[in-house]
Design a protein around this nucleic acid. Structure first.
Lengths: 137, 137
DNA sequence: TTGATATATGCAATAGAGTTGCATCACTAA
DNA sequence: TTAGTGATGCAACTCTATTGCATATATCAA
């Protein structure tokens, strides 16, 4: 019986090394998106570069997505649509709490359709809300 | 007869120095949001730091707003609602062109209301669309 | 106008995130 | 088992953003 981490990495063509499995589980257990610095702090005996490349590999293979919450520091959160190899990109919104500084995915809130002016073609979108999260209200 | 630049800076309590007026006009004449590097390139004989602080002063006093288009480099565009001193923040969306790399404000496209889960309070929002702009289609 | 005060500018240095090169180690497949 | 590919560790570096401090400039009150 393989773990979820192993299954997902296999599905995404990412070699399930020990480090990657640990990072996957770490991401899985965190409610909020994580920065490279978070990983560095919580994986004391690991190399910064390896963690960096782990995130980049995950991102390239759609295990995680990068979130830009305006802090200027990239954050990463697990993709949640692991059903199949070619599942469509999950467009959801992100919420950044101005109090606790956490950034979370709100996968249930879908982004409404936006009509663009003539000549503009949208391929991707990011919706970021800032305010106070449920933990801080 | 004062120029628009002078009027706006006065309104926003920003001292209208020569540098600031030039930067204002520069921003006014650019369709796309500008980076600090853009300013450095186009104001050859000016100090990087002065340009940086000019942008920050403009931002603090709501002459410009910062745009984060996912490139990791901050861009700035003029606020357009200069009607009065206390005009509400103008929530509009931004479009980033993956071809020419330009980022523009689409002030006519308003952001639809988003309902959030219990406990979340929104204070601000950013909507970024990525794709191909009207110049590149 | 003049002096006192506050603000703006110029220059240098630094911080910090992100990224790359290269040597070595580990895994995979024939 | 061996060749080849990919992962990791370490060091160095790039680039944006930011701050400290000295000097210049503008503003205001007397």
């Amino acid at each position: 019986m393989k773990t979820e981490a192993e299954n997902v990495l296999k599905l995404r063509n990412v070699r399930p090394t020990a480090m990657r499995l640990m990072v996957f589980d770490y991401l899985k257990n965190r409610k909020a998106a994580v920065t490279l610095a978070d990983l560095e702090n919580d994986f004391d005996h690991s190399e910064r570069t390896t963690l960096y490349r782990t995130l980049k590999t995950f991102e390239k293979n759609r295990v995680v997505h990068q979130i830009n919450d305006g802090s200027g520091i990239a954050k990463y959160a697990l993709d949640l649509n692991f059903q199949d190899k070619f599942s469509a990109k999950d467009l959801h919104l992100h919420f950044h709490c101005n109090v606790c500084n956490a950034t979370v995915c709100l996968t249930d809130q879908k982004i409404p359709h936006i009509s663009l002016p003539e000549g503009f073609v949208a391929e991707d979108m990011n919706l970021l809300l800032k305010g106070i999260c449920d933990n801080c209200t």
